[in-house]
């Protein structure tokens, strides 16, 4: 759910502003108790989503699963407490999610990370190092495919040994290899002159 190449007007709005608006909208939606204004809000959110020129293909599956959930909620609440209240909850959820997706899809991953680092920067008064935060995020992104590969490798090895239904046989080597990866990577960081005490 990342903005691929987005050149809409929304992509030019700073990520922080979009987040702030999203937060206000989410609070606002919970203050509304009738379905009519919520239906209007839903139309606004859809209009915004379309104006952001996002690749709708990217949204297909999230939207389908969201609609299923919303449908279930509506039916559930409709039977239990009345159809109107069900509609309010369903509309609210749908609207909020579409707003959130719109923000996500019009903001690049880098912009998001930058925003997080800004948000986290007051932590430096508590002894945290902003440079370490950005390194940590970059490293995590770097190691997700690596860890997935390790996981599949370990699972394959245990399958080969006939340990099909033994989650321990997968989890123990996975954790140990993760620790080893961390050790070696920390060494590599040190060897390349990374100094966790200085800020860039």
């Amino acid at each position: 759910m990342i903005a691929a190449k987005n050149d809409s007007w929304l992509a030019l709005v700073p990520a922080g502003a979009k987040f702030a608006v999203l937060l206000l909208v989410s609070i606002g939606l919970y203050l509304v108790g009738h379905w009519q204004p919520l239906a209007v809000a839903l139309l606004v959110s859809i209009a915004l989503l379309l104006s952001a020129k996002v690749a709708l293909r990217q949204l297909l599956w999230p939207l389908v699963s969201l609609l299923v959930i919303v449908g279930i909620i509506w039916v559930l609440l409709g039977i239990q407490t009345g159809w109107e209240q069900g509609a309010v909850a369903a509309l609210r959820l749908l609207t909020l999610c579409i707003f959130a997706y719109t923000v996500s899809l019009s903001t690049t991953f880098d912009q998001m990370l930058e925003l997080f680092q800004k948000v986290a920067s007051p932590l430096k008064y508590l002894g945290a190092n902003p440079a370490q935060i950005s390194l940590g995020l970059a490293l995590a992104v770097r190691f997700i495919p690596e860890l997935k590969r390790v996981y599949l490798e370990v699972r394959e090895a245990q399958f080969a040994r006939g340990l099909h239904n033994n989650p321990l046989a997968v989890a123990v080597p996975l954790v140990i290899r993760s620790l080893r990866i961390a050790e070696e990577t920390a060494e590599a960081l040190d060897a390349r002159g990374y100094d966790s005490t200085t800020t860039p």
């Binding site: 390194l135 970059a138 490293l139 770097r142 690596e146 990866i181 070696e184 990577t185 060494e187 590599a188 960081l189 040190d190 060897a191 390349r192 002159g193």
Partner: peptide, 17 residues
């Protein structure tokens, strides 16, 4: 460490970014 570079055995774990 500025003068001494180090290339490790497992290339996967030394590429950081």
């Amino acid at each position: 460490r500025r003068d001494v570079g180090f290339v490790f055995q497992n290339p996967a774990n030394q590429i950081i970014m």
